[in-house]
Amino acid sequence: MKQLTVTCDLEGDMGISNIPLEDIVYLEFSKVSTKDKVIAHTEESKFYMPGTLKYWTHVFNASGLRYRTVDRSFAINVDKVISIDNVFLTAYFEVKRCTMSRRMYEDLVSEFPHLTIGIESRRPV
């Protein structure tokens, strides 16, 4: 099992921890003061690591995971998505959820059409 070294708080005052890569459901970019940080969200918590969303999305994909950028600030672990709301453009996981841009939502369902199986469209006809 691959592990990722992260901090439990923004400034690293609580030290470092290792979490399994497979536990991360989505990544969130956060520019805090002048530092680029990525927040790794698991179903139970969130963790912090330096860098950019583009960098970490690339690294996770190179490690065999399937991450896709769904907004300028979010990248999701495609294998953790439970359902997608095509009206509110939201990806749902077991506990958490993540919003998407319209264009990136369309790119995602084009690449992974199985994510929309069983999801009824709530758009007016």
Rank of each mutant, 00 (worst) to 15 (best):
L4D: 06
R97A: 08
M1I: 00
M14D: 11
S83N: 07
K54Q: 09
R97H: 12
N86Y: 02
T7R: 12
S45N: 14
K96H: 10
T42N: 11
E106P: 02
K2Q: 14
G12W: 14
R123W: 11
Q3C: 02
M100Y: 11
V125W: 04
I119P: 01
R72V: 08
I39W: 06
S121W: 04
E111H: 08
P113R: 14
H41C: 10
E11Y: 14
D36G: 01
P20W: 01
F47N: 00
S33A: 09
M49T: 11
C98G: 08
R68Y: 05
N61S: 01
E43Y: 07
N77I: 01
V59S: 04
L21A: 10
S73T: 12
P124T: 01
V81C: 07
M104L: 15
F47C: 01
L115P: 13
K54R: 10
Q3D: 02
Y55I: 01
M104K: 13
A91L: 07
I39R: 12
K2M: 14
W56R: 12
R97V: 00
D23E: 10
V125D: 00
C98Y: 08
R102G: 00
Y105N: 04
T42V: 07
N18K: 15
V78Y: 05
C98W: 07
R68M: 15
K31P: 09
T99Q: 10
Y26W: 05
I119K: 14
K80E: 10
V59P: 04
R97Q: 15
F29W: 12
T99D: 13
V25G: 02
E43L: 06
L65S: 05
K96Q: 13
L21G: 05
R122Y: 02
L65C: 03
E120Q: 14
L21R: 09
V25C: 12
M49A: 11
S30E: 08
K37M: 15
R123K: 15
V59H: 03
G12Y: 14
H41R: 08
P20F: 00
V70C: 04
C8F: 03
I24Y: 08
K46V: 04
N61L: 02
D36V: 00
S83C: 02
K54I: 12
R123A: 07
R103Y: 05
F74M: 06
T116C: 10
A62V: 13
N77S: 04
E44H: 14
F29K: 12
V81F: 05
F60I: 06
S17D: 12
S83R: 14
F74S: 04
I82G: 00
N86P: 06
C98A: 12
D9M: 03
Y92N: 12
H114F: 13
K54C: 02
G12E: 10
D23K: 05
L4C: 01
V59L: 00
A91G: 05
R102I: 01
T52G: 03
G12M: 14
M49H: 11
I76K: 00
S30P: 00
C98E: 09
T99G: 03
D13L: 13
R123F: 02
T42W: 08
K37L: 15
F74V: 08
N18M: 08
F93W: 04
T34K: 14
G64V: 13
D23S: 15
